[in-house]
């Protein structure tokens, strides 16, 4: 359990760092939005909005993670529940059936690719975002089905 405690502490540091980066990027985005030229296209606005939304989501999720992990760290039972949840064999099976470990990595990579592609071709951006949403929806659906069956 001590090893897991160290792991949780490391995660808190990582999530705190991520929150700070997201806040910094969010502030920068707010100020840069004010400098949008009058002739800016709707697509350019959509990409900026998407990026801002993504940054805010990462920030909020990281903040929630920090609070959750801090609470677990101060409570032995909550820490054990968290440990059990992460190492639960049934959940591991469900996750692997839904293809989650690999799907999470590919989704993040595709989102990064979509943002970069958005600067060059808006169609590629929309396609990649749609593909990510579709694969996440399918994975969530498979996970739900597995959870009701297992």
């Amino acid at each position: 359990m001590e090893e897991f405690r160290t792991k949780v502490k490391r995660r808190i540091i990582l999530a705190s760092g991520l929150t700070l980066v997201a806040v910094a990027l969010g502030i920068y985005a707010v100020f840069s939005l004010q400098n949008v030229p009058d002739d800016a296209t709707m697509s350019a606005g959509f990409i900026s909005g998407f990026q801002f939304g993504l940054i805010m989501s990462i920030g909020i999720l990281s903040m929630v993670t920090v609070v959750k992990l801090r609470r677990a760290l101060n409570d032995e039972i909550k820490l054990k529940v968290l440990y059990n949840k992460e190492h639960d064999e049934r959940l591991k099976t469900i996750r692997s059936k839904a293809g989650q470990p690999l799907l999470s990595i590919t989704s993040v990579l595709m989102i990064i690719a979509a943002i970069i592609a958005g600067y060059f071709n808006i169609v590629v951006f929309y396609t990649l975002v749609a593909a990510v949403l579709a694969q996440l929806a399918i994975s969530a659906g498979v996970k739900l089905v597995c959870m009701t069956k297992m």
Partner: peptide
């Protein structure tokens, strides 16, 4: 029970109703 044996409440429920077969270790 879940806390004692290192699993989740949902897994205990699934084993009890016969939806999930526990591993040898569990």
């Amino acid at each position: 029970l879940a806390l004692e044996v290192g699993t989740t409440r949902q897994t205990i429920t699934s084993i009890e109703v016969g939806k999930y077969t526990a591993s040898l270790v569990l």
